[in-house]
Amino acid sequence: MIPVGHDPAGQAGWDDHPPRMGFFTDTSVCIGCKACEVACKEWNDVPSDGLNFSGMSFDNSWGLGADTRCHVAFIEQPRGEREDGIRWLMSSDVCKHCTEAACLDVCPTGALFRTEYGTVVVQQDVCNGCGYCVPACPFGVIDQRKDDGRVWKCTLCYDRLQVGQEPACAKACPTNSIQFGVLDELRPRAQARVAALQAAGETEAHLYGDSPDDGVGGAGAFFLLLDQPEVYGLPPDPVVTTRALGSMWKRAAVAAVGLIGAAVASSIGGRHG
């Protein structure tokens, strides 16, 4: 059997499906233009997330949410060893389309599903707003709209993929920081890019979410980062919660039986008391 990491769509019951598609986001060439944010909102008809000045560098979108499915982070790191004294990291974040997607696992209604491209998408007509997926996501991606309670997130532009178009954000990215493609082709490309940067002295360059052996079985959207993940607001080493679900159920069963036992014991105990 093929490891899940390589064929989530197949695991989800799609036979002869297209290859798994995803993003390699090379943050080292991101210029922070936010074209991706705007393209996402325009294409997916996402409303404004409010006009709130943040004081957090040039980031006034605050973070991913129901109405911000693509978010560009700005990190100012002062007084390094560079003679110009500062480096300004920028990176565009989206749903990771996890191989082992907690949101999808815990969804009681089946609203969240795995597409033939191996991506994870919400069916808005099925979602009942139970909100379970929200705390389940280890990356803080999916979120609820206050008005109707349903949840929203990046779909990797499922509708565009179905007509052979690349996702809106990747299409709009002027520097190819967001590279869309067949995941198996993106991974080696990304490794080569890291090697090149390392060689150029960018020793901190590393990939995030590319490995099928990580806590979520590898992400469908992975990143080249120039600093620790948490600096970008990403969890350093998340493990999908459902990996422990089996033992949770076992323990719940024991506890339940224990409860019956205790009830019976205390009742019988009385007779001879």
């Binding site: 936010k34 705007v38 909102k41 409303p47 404004s48 409010g50 006009l51 709130n52 000045f53 040039f58």
Partner: peptide, 10 residues
Amino acid sequence: GEHLSELQPE
């Protein structure tokens, strides 16, 4: 335009 305005609101 709301999509641009929210990115630099003030």
